[in-house]
């Protein structure tokens, strides 16, 4: 672990009413590394990701990007920090009213004020990098399959060649073959861009494929972290149960 991580999270807390979702998360990610956070539903994965993205304001703790504290930044500075980010949402989060290329080029045309012609060229280039043909450029998101929508979301995330990429459940709702295609594309793009990546998922094949390292979150805390290849020999009974997908073990969901 480097002394100057790209992303540094310490003692992060977030509650919703009486529900204490994050209970002191500590996590560092070095530049150029891909970390996957695994964990069951409701363990705080999405809240963690949204806190880093500035979509939720944590109650306590610190999040630093390149050494800059990002919690509580004014909106303009937050937008500037967000220009380092690329994000693939679970459902794609594509804008229905815009065409595919307009979705991909959204940041270029709206935040960077790039002329539409040039932005379209870059969008089509980004689409090609995720194996989407130019013929799809003028279609609407509703005209594409779920897997293709994920690829559009990925193209939108990488079009500006961001320093940091986030992936929220990138393979949820996809068939195994399409999921593998998305995993390969994510791995390719993260490597090619040299980006730092944080992904959250509960899909183990995806976690193994995308991550250099895997961390497990349980009850709002990181309970294990290690290289992706060690996930099957974690020596942690919580991780073992999760990886095996067993109903019996220290994580008891049967009690509701």
């Amino acid at each position: 672990m480097s002394k100057n991580p790209k992303i540094s999270i310490s003692n992060l807390h977030k509650s919703f009413g009486s529900k204490h979702v994050l209970q002191g998360v500590n996590l560092n990610v070095d530049a150029g590394k891909s970390l996957v956070v695994i964990g069951g539903s409701g363990t705080g994965k999405s809240v963690l990701l949204k806190s880093i993205l500035g979509l939720l304001r944590p109650d306590q703790g610190s999040i630093e990007i390149d050494g800059t504290q990002i919690i509580g930044l004014p909106p303009r500075k937050q937008e500037k920090i967000a220009s380092k980010f690329g994000m693939l949402f679970q459902g794609g989060a594509l804008f229905d009213s815009l065409s595919i290329w307009e979705n991909v080029a959204f940041r270029l045309t709206h935040a960077d004020n790039m002329p539409r012609k040039r932005a379209k060229e870059l969008a089509i280039e980004a689409m090609a990098r995720v194996n989407l043909s130019k013929a799809n450029a003028d279609l609407r998101p509703a005209e594409l399959s779920g897997g293709m929508q994920k690829r559009v979301g990925l193209a939108r995330a990488i079009v500006t060649r961001p320093q940091i990429l986030f992936f929220d459940e990138p393979t949820t709702g996809l068939d195994p073959i399409t999921a593998d295609v998305i995993n390969r594309l994510i791995r390719e793009q993260v490597t090619e861009l040299g980006a730092t990546a944080i992904s959250i998922t509960h899909d183990m094949p995806s976690a193994r494929h995308i991550g250099d390292e895997i961390a497990m979150i349980f009850e709002g805390k990181i309970i294990w972290r290690g290289p992706a290849q060690d996930i099957d020999n974690s020596q942690n009974e919580y991780v073992d149960q999760f990886v095996k997908g067993s109903a019996t073990g220290p994580i008891n969901l049967m009690a509701g």
């Binding site: 979509l55 909106p75 994000m87 949402f89 459902g91 594509l94 804008f95 709206h110 935040a111 986030f166």
Partner: peptide
């Protein structure tokens, strides 16, 4: 519907303020 499908969150991550856009 945009909020439910995370499109408003997506706007923010694309450095676009939903109040302006």
């Amino acid at each position: 519907a945009m909020k439910v499908t995370e499109q408003i969150d997506a706007l923010r991550t694309l450095s676009t303020n939903p109040f302006n856009y």
